[in-house]
Amino acid sequence: MIERVNQLGSDAPESGGLPRGRSVAVWSLDTTLRRVGGRAVDGAWTVLDAGERDRAERLVRAADRQRYLASHLGLRILLGGCLGLAPEEVSLVREDCPCCGGPHGRPAVAGGAVHFSLSHSGNLAYFAFAGTPVGVDVEETPGASAMADVLSSLHPDETAELTALPGPERRAALGRLWSRKEAYLKGTGTGLAKGLADPYIGAAPAPGPLPGWTLTDLPAPAGYAAALAVADPAPGRSRTG
Results as ranks from 00 to 15, higher is better:
Gly175Trp: 07
Pro209Lys: 04
Ala234Lys: 10
Pro219Glu: 10
Glu182Asp: 04
Arg176Met: 01
Leu48Gly: 06
Gly21Ile: 06
Leu78Asp: 01
Gly37Asp: 06
Val47Thr: 14
Val5Met: 03
Leu196Cys: 08
Pro235Ser: 12
His104Arg: 14
Ala172Leu: 14
Ala130Asp: 05
His155Trp: 00
Pro103Asp: 08
Arg76Gly: 07
Pro87Met: 06
Ser117Cys: 09
Gly21Ser: 13
Ile201Asn: 02
Pro166Arg: 11
Ala148Pro: 01
Ala203Gly: 12
Gly202Ala: 11
Gly195Gln: 13
Asn6Thr: 05
Pro219Gly: 11
Gly175Val: 09
Ile201Gly: 02
Tyr68Arg: 02
Ala193Gly: 07
Leu73Trp: 07
Gly111Tyr: 07
Ala70Arg: 09
Leu192His: 12
Gly202Thr: 12
Arg34Met: 13
Ala148Trp: 00
Ala70His: 09
Arg171Glu: 14
Gly167Phe: 02
His104Leu: 12
Ala146Tyr: 01
Ala231Trp: 00
Leu48Ser: 07
Val134Trp: 08
Pro205Tyr: 13
Ser238Gly: 15
Asp149Lys: 13
Pro207Leu: 06
Val138Asp: 00
Leu185Ala: 04
Leu83Asn: 02
Pro98Asp: 07
Leu75Pro: 10
Pro233Glu: 05
Gly16Ser: 11
Arg180Tyr: 04
Gly135Ser: 12
Arg67Gln: 15
Asp54Gly: 13
Gly37Glu: 06
Gly16Ile: 03
Ala183Lys: 00
Val93Ala: 04
Glu57Gly: 15
Pro235His: 08
Leu59His: 13
Asn6Leu: 15
Asn123Asp: 14
Ser152Ile: 04
Pro233Asp: 06
Ala204Arg: 15
Val5Gly: 00
Leu218Pro: 00
Trp45Asp: 13
Ala204Leu: 14
Tyr126Leu: 14
Gln66Val: 06
Ser145Val: 09
Pro221Trp: 08
Gly37Lys: 09
Leu69Gln: 13
Cys99Gly: 12
Leu92Thr: 03
Val90Leu: 07
Glu88Trp: 01
Thr240Met: 00
Ala183Met: 01
Arg34Ser: 15
Glu161Ser: 10
Gly167Glu: 15
Val150Ser: 09
Gly187Phe: 11
Gly111Glu: 05
Arg237Pro: 00
Ala125Tyr: 02
Thr188Cys: 13
Ala63Thr: 14
Ala172Met: 09
Leu165Arg: 15
Ala197Asn: 09
Asp232Met: 03
Arg106Ile: 06
Ala63Glu: 15
Gly81Thr: 08
Leu162Val: 03
Val47His: 07
Asp30Lys: 02
Lys181Ile: 01
Thr240Arg: 10
Leu79Trp: 00
Asp42Met: 04
Ala25Gln: 14
Asn6Phe: 12
Glu88His: 12
Glu52Val: 10
Arg170Asn: 09
Trp27Cys: 09
Tyr184Asp: 04
Leu83Met: 03
Gly143Trp: 05
Thr132Tyr: 01
Ser71Trp: 05
His72Asn: 07
Gly38Met: 10
Arg20Leu: 06
Leu218Cys: 03
Val47Trp: 05
Leu59Asp: 08
Glu14Thr: 14
Gly122Val: 10
Ala148Met: 08
Ala226Val: 12
Thr163Glu: 11
Gly80Ile: 00
Ser238Trp: 05
Lys181Gln: 04
Ser152Asp: 15
Arg65Val: 03
Ser91Glu: 14
Ala173Tyr: 02
Ser91Leu: 12
Glu52Phe: 09
Pro87Glu: 01
Ala108Val: 02
Ala25Phe: 04
Ser23Asp: 08
Gly105Thr: 13
Gly187Pro: 10
Ile2Glu: 01
Gly189Tyr: 05
Arg94Thr: 04
Asp232Thr: 11
Leu85Ala: 11
